[in-house]
Amino acid sequence: MDFRLTDDQRALRQGIRELLEGRFGREELRAALGRAERRGGATDGKHPEGGQVLDRRLWRELGAAGFFALRLAEAEGGVGQGLPEAVLAFEEAGRVLLPGPLIATHLAAGAVAGAATGEVVVTSVGAGLVEWLDEADVVRGNAAGAEPLASVDPLTPLHRLPASTDRRPGGGELRAPWPPDTLLASLLTAAEQLGSAARTCETAVQHARTREQFGQPIGAFQAVQHLCAGMLVRVEVARAAVYAASVTADPVDIAAARLLADEAAVRGARDCLQVHGGMGFTWESDVHLHLKRAWIRTHRAGEATQGEEELADDLVAGTV
């Protein structure tokens, strides 16, 4: 047993981190936010100016770097990597708030022409919501009757689905097993949440080191220190769960990873906002973008209540 990252995994993570830092740093994030706001009709989901928010050139660059084809077999033109590598990649995407239906396109690689190379943007119908419906080239699932809503995150446009078109087989009571793609989407969502949680922890620590009040950095106050320590604990516990689930691909492991990563991301963004004080409440701070994206991710591919029920079922199933 050696749970640590291999040298290849470290190199892959580093490569993606450098790519994203170079191509989607803070300037590009704020530029994308500007495009989303200029689109004007954000509240009705239409594009009066016809502007695209997604950067298609970046999407193709991600494709060329193997982001979408990461798990596709080499014989099919993919990179031939596994779930752990995909989790590392999506963790990096979560760190920088990379926008777009990344997971749907990644899961469509090999099944939808052009997805693997980033030529095509693919979205999929989720549990009551569809992300990026207007900008996607291909929609997987039945989005009939979808209505736009004023998404809390400008960089994740949302449509809501008419009631009862999106429930998984069996409904809430029978708890039928998740289809494989939903499980993978849940795990990759957890990876994004993990990246966001790690980033907000680092951001809070950085701010606490430099912001001075009462003649000292606020990070010297225990009240602030303990908020930051709590953030790190949640990140590291979630990291162990997410990485392990990527190795086992076990549904219960994935449910556990998702639950803890959701919590690490949402509470991490909240605490980061608190550490930033008044500035954390402003639009120009990026903290709110992490919080809003984290909220949206919690509604993807199975919500917390379902995860908790699955984990409870597991206890009496005797597989612990």
Binding site: V237, A257, L260, E309
Partner: peptide, 28 residues
């Protein structure tokens, strides 16, 4: 109550993985 126990299951599963993580680090 079920959900409370389910969440504890997630936490203890994660703590087991964190143990494996820390042991791997120590071994390395």
């Amino acid at each position: 109550l079920r959900r409370r126990l389910g969440r504890l299951n997630a936490e203890f599963r994660a703590l087991w993985r964190l143990t494996q993580w820390n042991v791997s680090e120590a071994q390395g």
